[in-house]
Design a protein around this nucleic acid. Structure first.
Length: 419
DNA sequence: TCTGGGGTCCTAGGACCC
DNA sequence: TCTGGGGTCCTAGGACCC
Protein backbone atom coordinates (compact mmCIF):
# COMPACT_ATOMS: atom_id res chain seq x y z
CA UNK A 1 0.00 0.00 0.00
CA UNK A 2 1.06 3.55 -0.77
CA UNK A 3 0.08 6.73 1.05
CA UNK A 4 -0.06 10.20 -0.42
CA UNK A 5 0.35 12.92 2.17
CA UNK A 6 -0.65 16.34 0.88
CA UNK A 7 -0.55 19.60 2.81
CA UNK A 8 -3.81 21.53 2.85
CA UNK A 9 -3.61 24.91 1.07
CA UNK A 10 0.09 24.75 1.83
CA UNK A 11 1.29 28.33 1.31
CA UNK A 12 -1.77 29.75 3.08
CA UNK A 13 -1.21 27.31 5.94
CA UNK A 14 2.45 28.38 6.26
CA UNK A 15 1.35 32.00 6.68
CA UNK A 16 -1.19 30.96 9.30
CA UNK A 17 1.35 29.08 11.39
CA UNK A 18 3.06 32.39 12.14
CA UNK A 19 -0.08 34.53 12.28
CA UNK A 20 -3.03 32.64 13.77
CA UNK A 21 -5.22 35.71 13.30
CA UNK A 22 -5.50 34.50 9.71
CA UNK A 23 -7.39 31.38 10.80
CA UNK A 24 -10.92 31.40 9.46
CA UNK A 25 -10.15 34.35 7.17
CA UNK A 26 -9.72 34.27 3.40
CA UNK A 27 -6.00 34.18 2.49
CA UNK A 28 -4.39 34.18 -0.95
CA UNK A 29 -0.75 33.98 -2.02
CA UNK A 30 0.47 35.58 -5.23
CA UNK A 31 3.04 34.29 -7.71
CA UNK A 32 6.40 35.95 -8.22
CA UNK A 33 6.01 39.63 -9.08
CA UNK A 34 2.63 39.57 -7.33
CA UNK A 35 1.18 38.48 -10.66
CA UNK A 36 -1.34 35.66 -10.22
CA UNK A 37 -3.13 33.92 -7.39
CA UNK A 38 -1.32 30.62 -6.80
CA UNK A 39 -2.67 29.49 -3.43
CA UNK A 40 -5.92 30.04 -1.56
CA UNK A 41 -7.35 29.17 1.81
CA UNK A 42 -10.73 27.41 1.82
CA UNK A 43 -12.43 30.72 2.64
CA UNK A 44 -10.79 32.32 -0.41
CA UNK A 45 -11.85 29.40 -2.63
CA UNK A 46 -15.41 29.84 -1.34
CA UNK A 47 -15.33 33.45 -2.56
CA UNK A 48 -14.79 32.14 -6.07
CA UNK A 49 -11.17 33.29 -6.41
CA UNK A 50 -9.74 31.12 -9.17
CA UNK A 51 -6.35 29.45 -9.23
CA UNK A 52 -4.05 31.39 -11.55
CA UNK A 53 -6.28 34.46 -11.67
CA UNK A 54 -4.30 37.66 -12.44
CA UNK A 55 -4.15 39.72 -9.25
CA UNK A 56 -4.77 43.06 -10.90
CA UNK A 57 -8.12 41.81 -12.22
CA UNK A 58 -9.08 40.59 -8.73
CA UNK A 59 -8.06 43.74 -6.92
CA UNK A 60 -11.56 45.00 -6.25
CA UNK A 61 -12.85 41.64 -5.02
CA UNK A 62 -9.81 41.13 -2.79
CA UNK A 63 -10.30 44.52 -1.17
CA UNK A 64 -14.05 44.30 -0.85
CA UNK A 65 -13.96 40.86 0.76
CA UNK A 66 -11.10 41.76 3.09
CA UNK A 67 -8.89 39.02 1.72
CA UNK A 68 -5.42 38.76 3.26
CA UNK A 69 -3.00 38.90 0.34
CA UNK A 70 0.64 37.76 0.47
CA UNK A 71 3.55 37.77 -1.94
CA UNK A 72 5.27 34.40 -2.33
CA UNK A 73 7.76 33.72 0.46
CA UNK A 74 9.70 30.74 -0.83
CA UNK A 75 12.32 30.97 1.91
CA UNK A 76 9.50 30.24 4.36
CA UNK A 77 7.58 27.68 2.28
CA UNK A 78 10.72 25.76 1.34
CA UNK A 79 11.88 25.55 4.92
CA UNK A 80 8.43 24.56 6.20
CA UNK A 81 8.29 21.90 3.49
CA UNK A 82 11.60 20.48 4.71
CA UNK A 83 10.24 20.31 8.24
CA UNK A 84 7.07 18.53 7.12
CA UNK A 85 9.06 16.01 5.08
CA UNK A 86 11.48 15.37 7.91
CA UNK A 87 8.62 14.75 10.34
CA UNK A 88 7.03 12.22 7.97
CA UNK A 89 10.38 10.60 7.37
CA UNK A 90 10.82 9.97 11.09
CA UNK A 91 7.62 7.90 11.04
CA UNK A 92 7.96 6.13 7.68
CA UNK A 93 11.41 5.42 6.19
CA UNK A 94 10.48 5.02 2.50
CA UNK A 95 9.58 8.53 1.38
CA UNK A 96 9.32 10.11 -2.07
CA UNK A 97 9.10 13.89 -2.01
CA UNK A 98 6.82 14.52 -4.97
CA UNK A 99 6.44 18.29 -4.73
CA UNK A 100 6.87 21.09 -2.24
CA UNK A 101 3.69 20.01 -0.43
CA UNK A 102 3.25 16.31 -1.25
CA UNK A 103 4.97 13.05 -0.45
CA UNK A 104 4.32 9.42 -1.30
CA UNK A 105 5.30 6.85 1.33
CA UNK A 106 5.58 3.09 1.05
CA UNK A 107 3.60 1.39 3.81
CA UNK A 108 4.40 -2.21 2.89
CA UNK A 109 6.92 -2.69 5.67
CA UNK A 110 4.95 -0.82 8.31
CA UNK A 111 3.78 -2.88 11.30
CA UNK A 112 0.23 -1.55 11.41
CA UNK A 113 -2.82 -3.77 11.11
CA UNK A 114 -4.96 -0.67 10.71
CA UNK A 115 -3.43 1.72 8.18
CA UNK A 116 -5.91 4.46 9.00
CA UNK A 117 -4.43 4.52 12.49
CA UNK A 118 -0.98 5.13 10.99
CA UNK A 119 -2.44 7.81 8.74
CA UNK A 120 -3.95 9.58 11.75
CA UNK A 121 -0.62 9.38 13.56
CA UNK A 122 1.20 10.98 10.62
CA UNK A 123 -1.39 13.70 10.44
CA UNK A 124 -1.26 14.52 14.13
CA UNK A 125 2.52 14.42 14.30
CA UNK A 126 2.95 16.80 11.34
CA UNK A 127 0.41 19.13 12.89
CA UNK A 128 2.16 19.02 16.24
CA UNK A 129 5.70 19.50 14.92
CA UNK A 130 5.07 22.04 12.16
CA UNK A 131 1.55 23.45 12.55
CA UNK A 132 0.69 22.38 9.01
CA UNK A 133 -2.57 20.49 8.37
CA UNK A 134 -2.27 17.54 5.98
CA UNK A 135 -4.57 14.91 4.50
CA UNK A 136 -3.60 11.30 3.92
CA UNK A 137 -4.89 8.98 1.19
CA UNK A 138 -3.93 5.32 1.21
CA UNK A 139 -4.38 2.83 -1.65
CA UNK A 140 -2.65 0.04 -3.58
CA UNK A 141 -1.35 2.39 -6.30
CA UNK A 142 -0.16 5.98 -6.56
CA UNK A 143 -3.04 6.99 -8.79
CA UNK A 144 -5.59 5.57 -6.36
CA UNK A 145 -3.74 7.16 -3.41
CA UNK A 146 -4.12 10.51 -5.17
CA UNK A 147 -7.85 9.91 -5.50
CA UNK A 148 -8.10 8.75 -1.87
CA UNK A 149 -6.31 11.90 -0.72
CA UNK A 150 -8.63 14.14 -2.67
CA UNK A 151 -11.58 12.32 -1.23
CA UNK A 152 -10.19 12.67 2.30
CA UNK A 153 -9.87 16.41 1.78
CA UNK A 154 -13.36 16.93 0.41
CA UNK A 155 -15.51 14.39 2.17
CA UNK A 156 -14.17 13.50 5.59
CA UNK A 157 -13.57 15.33 8.85
CA UNK A 158 -10.72 12.99 9.67
CA UNK A 159 -8.54 13.99 6.73
CA UNK A 160 -7.78 10.32 6.14
CA UNK A 161 -9.13 7.83 3.61
CA UNK A 162 -8.07 4.27 2.85
CA UNK A 163 -8.87 2.40 -0.37
CA UNK A 164 -8.42 -1.23 0.64
CA UNK A 165 -6.61 -3.69 -1.62
CA UNK A 166 -8.71 -6.33 -3.32
CA UNK A 167 -12.08 -5.28 -4.67
CA UNK A 168 -12.43 -2.36 -7.09
CA UNK A 169 -13.36 0.75 -5.06
CA UNK A 170 -16.36 1.51 -7.26
CA UNK A 171 -18.01 4.04 -5.01
CA UNK A 172 -15.09 6.46 -4.73
CA UNK A 173 -14.22 6.05 -8.44
CA UNK A 174 -17.79 6.79 -9.40
CA UNK A 175 -17.66 9.98 -7.34
CA UNK A 176 -14.44 11.22 -8.95
CA UNK A 177 -14.82 13.19 -12.18
CA UNK A 178 -12.50 12.00 -14.93
CA UNK A 179 -10.69 15.36 -15.09
CA UNK A 180 -9.78 15.01 -11.41
CA UNK A 181 -7.76 11.87 -12.07
CA UNK A 182 -3.97 12.37 -11.85
CA UNK A 183 -2.71 12.52 -15.45
CA UNK A 184 -5.94 13.73 -17.06
CA UNK A 185 -5.57 17.35 -18.12
CA UNK A 186 -7.68 19.63 -20.26
CA UNK A 187 -7.10 17.93 -23.62
CA UNK A 188 -7.70 14.40 -22.39
CA UNK A 189 -10.76 15.54 -20.47
CA UNK A 190 -12.25 16.89 -23.69
CA UNK A 191 -11.50 13.67 -25.54
CA UNK A 192 -12.81 11.38 -22.81
CA UNK A 193 -16.02 13.22 -21.98
CA UNK A 194 -16.67 13.38 -25.74
CA UNK A 195 -16.69 9.59 -25.68
CA UNK A 196 -18.98 9.40 -22.67
CA UNK A 197 -16.20 8.65 -20.20
CA UNK A 198 -17.18 10.94 -17.34
CA UNK A 199 -15.92 9.40 -14.12
CA UNK A 200 -12.83 7.60 -12.86
CA UNK A 201 -14.92 4.43 -12.84
CA UNK A 202 -15.79 4.84 -16.54
CA UNK A 203 -12.10 5.33 -17.25
CA UNK A 204 -11.10 2.27 -15.23
CA UNK A 205 -13.49 0.20 -17.36
CA UNK A 206 -12.44 1.59 -20.75
CA UNK A 207 -11.00 -0.72 -23.40
CA UNK A 208 -7.19 -0.71 -22.96
CA UNK A 209 -6.53 -0.75 -26.72
CA UNK A 210 -8.61 2.34 -27.25
CA UNK A 211 -6.80 4.06 -24.38
CA UNK A 212 -3.37 3.10 -25.70
CA UNK A 213 -4.27 4.46 -29.10
CA UNK A 214 -5.60 7.80 -27.86
CA UNK A 215 -3.74 8.45 -24.60
CA UNK A 216 -0.53 6.54 -25.38
CA UNK A 217 1.28 4.27 -22.98
CA UNK A 218 0.87 6.84 -20.23
CA UNK A 219 -2.91 6.49 -20.39
CA UNK A 220 -2.68 2.72 -20.41
CA UNK A 221 -0.65 2.77 -17.20
CA UNK A 222 -3.10 5.17 -15.67
CA UNK A 223 -6.01 2.80 -16.37
CA UNK A 224 -4.06 -0.11 -14.91
CA UNK A 225 -3.33 1.91 -11.79
CA UNK A 226 -7.04 2.66 -11.40
CA UNK A 227 -7.54 -1.11 -11.48
CA UNK A 228 -5.14 -1.52 -8.53
CA UNK A 229 -2.28 -2.70 -10.74
CA UNK A 230 0.84 -0.69 -9.79
CA UNK A 231 2.77 0.81 -12.72
CA UNK A 232 4.65 3.48 -10.80
CA UNK A 233 7.04 2.54 -8.03
CA UNK A 234 8.00 4.77 -5.15
CA UNK A 235 11.14 6.70 -6.12
CA UNK A 236 12.86 7.46 -2.87
CA UNK A 237 16.17 8.44 -4.51
CA UNK A 238 15.83 11.83 -6.20
CA UNK A 239 16.89 11.66 -9.85
CA UNK A 240 19.26 14.22 -11.34
CA UNK A 241 17.40 16.76 -13.45
CA UNK A 242 17.81 16.60 -17.23
CA UNK A 243 17.18 20.28 -17.73
CA UNK A 244 17.44 23.21 -15.34
CA UNK A 245 15.88 26.60 -15.94
CA UNK A 246 16.07 29.87 -14.05
CA UNK A 247 13.94 32.66 -15.42
CA UNK A 248 12.08 35.65 -14.03
CA UNK A 249 9.75 38.38 -15.09
CA UNK A 250 11.13 41.75 -14.10
CA UNK A 251 9.54 43.90 -11.40
CA UNK A 252 9.93 46.87 -13.70
CA UNK A 253 10.50 46.45 -17.44
CA UNK A 254 14.15 46.65 -18.53
CA UNK A 255 15.57 48.59 -21.48
CA UNK A 256 19.21 48.99 -20.39
CA UNK A 257 21.72 46.42 -21.51
CA UNK A 258 23.85 46.48 -18.31
CA UNK A 259 20.79 45.75 -16.18
CA UNK A 260 19.82 42.87 -18.43
CA UNK A 261 23.38 41.60 -18.02
CA UNK A 262 23.06 41.65 -14.24
CA UNK A 263 19.80 39.72 -14.37
CA UNK A 264 21.06 37.10 -16.81
CA UNK A 265 24.33 36.71 -14.87
CA UNK A 266 22.30 36.10 -11.71
CA UNK A 267 20.08 33.51 -13.42
CA UNK A 268 23.20 31.79 -14.74
CA UNK A 269 24.77 31.75 -11.28
CA UNK A 270 21.58 30.13 -9.96
CA UNK A 271 21.65 27.44 -12.68
CA UNK A 272 25.30 26.72 -11.91
CA UNK A 273 24.46 26.34 -8.21
CA UNK A 274 21.65 23.94 -9.01
CA UNK A 275 23.99 21.92 -11.21
CA UNK A 276 26.61 21.71 -8.45
CA UNK A 277 24.00 20.72 -5.88
CA UNK A 278 23.07 17.67 -7.93
CA UNK A 279 26.72 17.04 -8.87
CA UNK A 280 26.14 17.58 -12.56
CA UNK A 281 27.63 19.64 -15.34
CA UNK A 282 25.96 20.90 -18.52
CA UNK A 283 27.28 21.51 -22.00
CA UNK A 284 24.37 23.45 -23.49
CA UNK A 285 23.13 26.84 -22.38
CA UNK A 286 20.00 28.47 -23.72
CA UNK A 287 19.75 32.25 -23.24
CA UNK A 288 16.43 33.98 -23.83
CA UNK A 289 14.93 37.44 -23.40
CA UNK A 290 11.50 38.71 -24.28
CA UNK A 291 9.13 41.64 -24.22
CA UNK A 292 5.73 41.71 -22.55
CA UNK A 293 3.29 39.64 -24.66
CA UNK A 294 0.37 41.21 -22.77
CA UNK A 295 1.21 44.58 -24.30
CA UNK A 296 0.36 44.20 -28.00
CA UNK A 297 0.65 47.99 -28.29
CA UNK A 298 4.42 47.70 -27.78
CA UNK A 299 6.88 46.22 -30.28
CA UNK A 300 7.39 42.53 -29.52
CA UNK A 301 10.61 40.57 -29.62
CA UNK A 302 11.71 37.12 -28.52
CA UNK A 303 15.43 36.56 -28.67
CA UNK A 304 17.02 33.23 -27.88
CA UNK A 305 20.24 31.42 -28.52
CA UNK A 306 21.66 28.04 -27.65
CA UNK A 307 25.36 28.05 -26.77
CA UNK A 308 27.63 25.09 -26.53
CA UNK A 309 30.32 24.92 -23.89
CA UNK A 310 33.50 23.27 -25.18
CA UNK A 311 33.46 21.04 -22.09
CA UNK A 312 30.47 20.47 -19.79
CA UNK A 313 30.73 22.84 -16.86
CA UNK A 314 29.13 23.89 -13.59
CA UNK A 315 31.49 26.79 -12.92
CA UNK A 316 29.66 30.06 -12.30
CA UNK A 317 32.56 32.02 -13.78
CA UNK A 318 32.78 30.05 -17.00
CA UNK A 319 29.01 29.87 -17.46
CA UNK A 320 28.43 33.57 -16.78
CA UNK A 321 31.10 34.45 -19.34
CA UNK A 322 29.35 32.24 -21.90
CA UNK A 323 25.91 33.63 -21.05
CA UNK A 324 27.20 37.18 -21.55
CA UNK A 325 28.35 36.22 -25.06
CA UNK A 326 24.89 34.79 -25.75
CA UNK A 327 23.11 37.84 -24.40
CA UNK A 328 25.17 40.14 -26.62
CA UNK A 329 23.94 38.15 -29.62
CA UNK A 330 20.24 38.14 -28.71
CA UNK A 331 19.98 41.70 -27.38
CA UNK A 332 18.22 44.23 -29.62
CA UNK A 333 18.28 47.89 -28.74
CA UNK A 334 14.95 49.68 -28.47
CA UNK A 335 12.78 47.00 -26.91
CA UNK A 336 11.32 46.93 -23.42
CA UNK A 337 12.19 43.57 -21.88
CA UNK A 338 9.85 41.90 -19.43
CA UNK A 339 11.49 38.57 -18.86
CA UNK A 340 14.76 36.73 -19.33
CA UNK A 341 16.16 33.36 -18.43
CA UNK A 342 18.77 30.67 -18.74
CA UNK A 343 18.12 27.03 -19.44
CA UNK A 344 20.86 24.43 -19.24
CA UNK A 345 20.73 20.96 -20.75
CA UNK A 346 23.00 18.24 -22.00
CA UNK A 347 23.50 17.41 -18.35
CA UNK A 348 26.03 14.79 -17.28
CA UNK A 349 27.42 13.70 -13.90
CA UNK A 350 30.30 16.05 -12.99
CA UNK A 351 32.76 13.18 -12.61
CA UNK A 352 31.98 11.84 -16.10
CA UNK A 353 32.69 15.02 -18.06
CA UNK A 354 34.31 14.39 -21.44
CA UNK A 355 37.46 16.53 -21.68
CA UNK A 356 38.61 18.43 -24.74
CA UNK A 357 42.19 18.37 -25.83
CA UNK A 358 42.11 22.07 -26.73
CA UNK A 359 39.90 23.48 -23.99
CA UNK A 360 40.72 25.09 -20.65
CA UNK A 361 43.73 23.55 -19.01
CA UNK A 362 43.36 21.10 -16.18
CA UNK A 363 45.06 23.31 -13.61
CA UNK A 364 42.61 26.13 -14.16
CA UNK A 365 39.69 23.70 -14.03
CA UNK A 366 40.81 22.36 -10.66
CA UNK A 367 41.20 25.89 -9.32
CA UNK A 368 37.73 26.89 -10.46
CA UNK A 369 36.23 23.80 -8.91
CA UNK A 370 37.87 24.64 -5.57
CA UNK A 371 36.68 28.22 -5.84
CA UNK A 372 33.11 27.06 -6.47
CA UNK A 373 33.20 24.73 -3.47
CA UNK A 374 34.36 27.59 -1.28
CA UNK A 375 31.74 29.91 -2.75
CA UNK A 376 28.96 27.41 -2.08
CA UNK A 377 30.11 26.89 1.50
CA UNK A 378 30.28 30.61 2.21
CA UNK A 379 26.90 31.32 0.66
CA UNK A 380 25.31 28.46 2.54
CA UNK A 381 26.60 29.84 5.81
CA UNK A 382 26.32 33.57 5.24
CA UNK A 383 23.34 33.78 2.89
CA UNK A 384 22.82 33.62 -0.86
CA UNK A 385 25.08 35.81 -3.01
CA UNK A 386 27.37 36.79 -0.15
CA UNK A 387 30.05 35.89 -2.70
CA UNK A 388 29.15 36.36 -6.35
CA UNK A 389 30.70 37.24 -9.68
CA UNK A 390 30.96 40.94 -10.52
CA UNK A 391 28.58 40.76 -13.47
CA UNK A 392 25.73 39.95 -11.10
CA UNK A 393 26.03 43.54 -9.95
CA UNK A 394 24.50 45.44 -7.08
CA UNK A 395 21.71 47.13 -8.93
CA UNK A 396 18.79 44.82 -8.45
CA UNK A 397 16.51 47.30 -10.19
CA UNK A 398 15.22 44.42 -12.30
CA UNK A 399 14.27 42.52 -9.22
CA UNK A 400 10.90 41.01 -8.34
CA UNK A 401 8.04 42.98 -7.05
CA UNK A 402 7.13 41.54 -3.65
CA UNK A 403 5.07 44.10 -1.88
CA UNK A 404 3.37 41.89 0.65
CA UNK A 405 5.89 39.29 1.65
CA UNK A 406 5.72 38.02 5.23
CA UNK A 407 8.88 37.59 7.29
CA UNK A 408 11.29 34.74 6.70
CA UNK A 409 10.47 33.49 10.18
CA UNK A 410 12.46 30.28 10.13
CA UNK A 411 15.60 31.16 8.17
CA UNK A 412 16.68 34.66 9.29
CA UNK A 413 17.64 35.61 12.82
CA UNK A 414 16.55 39.19 12.29
CA UNK A 415 13.12 38.08 11.10
CA UNK A 416 12.20 35.74 13.95
CA UNK A 417 8.67 35.89 15.28
CA UNK A 418 8.21 38.34 18.15
CA UNK A 419 6.43 36.91 21.17
C1' DT B 1 6.67 -14.43 -59.18
C1' DC B 2 9.23 -10.61 -57.23
C1' DT B 3 11.86 -5.55 -53.70
C1' DG B 4 14.17 -7.28 -45.80
C1' DG B 5 14.71 -6.57 -41.22
C1' DG B 6 16.72 -4.80 -37.91
C1' DG B 7 18.64 -0.68 -35.25
C1' DT B 8 20.25 4.50 -33.29
C1' DC B 9 20.08 9.44 -32.54
C1' DC B 10 17.96 13.84 -32.81
C1' DT B 11 14.23 17.29 -32.87
C1' DA B 12 9.73 19.29 -32.50
C1' DG B 13 5.51 19.15 -30.64
C1' DG B 14 2.10 17.80 -27.45
C1' DA B 15 0.39 16.02 -23.35
C1' DC B 16 0.81 16.16 -18.42
C1' DC B 17 2.38 17.54 -13.23
C1' DC B 18 3.24 20.89 -9.06
C1' DT C 1 0.94 49.84 -14.13
C1' DC C 2 -0.56 45.12 -14.05
C1' DT C 3 -0.83 38.18 -16.35
C1' DG C 4 4.66 32.75 -12.45
C1' DG C 5 8.22 29.45 -12.64
C1' DG C 6 9.59 25.43 -12.69
C1' DG C 7 9.64 20.24 -14.43
C1' DT C 8 8.52 15.13 -16.85
C1' DC C 9 7.43 11.73 -20.45
C1' DC C 10 5.90 10.14 -25.05
C1' DT C 11 5.40 10.05 -30.14
C1' DA C 12 6.34 10.86 -34.92
C1' DG C 13 9.34 11.73 -38.42
C1' DG C 14 13.77 12.32 -40.54
C1' DA C 15 18.45 11.11 -41.07
C1' DC C 16 21.59 7.79 -40.51
C1' DC C 17 23.82 2.73 -39.72
C1' DC C 18 24.41 -2.52 -40.81
Amino acid sequence: MIALIDCNNFYASCERVFDPRLNGKPVVILSNNDGCVIARSNEAKALGIAMGAPAFLMKELLEKQDVHVFSSNYALYGDMSNRVMQTIHELVPALEIYSIDEAFVDLRAMPYADLSELARTIRERVRQCTGIPVCVGIAPTKTLAKIANRYAKKNTDQGVFVVPAGAMPTEILENTAVEDVWGIGRQYQKLLTGHGILTALDLARTNPHWIKKHLSIVGERLVRELNSQPCYELEDQPQAKKGICTSRSFGTPVTDYPILEEAVATFTARCAEKLRRQQSAAHLMHVFVFTNPHRPDQPQYYGNRVLQLPVASNSTMEMVAMAMRGLKIVFREGYTYKKAGIMVSGIVPEDEVQMDLFAMDEKRRTLERKAMTALDQLNRRMGRDTVKVGKQGYNRSWHLRQERRSRRYTTRWEELLDV
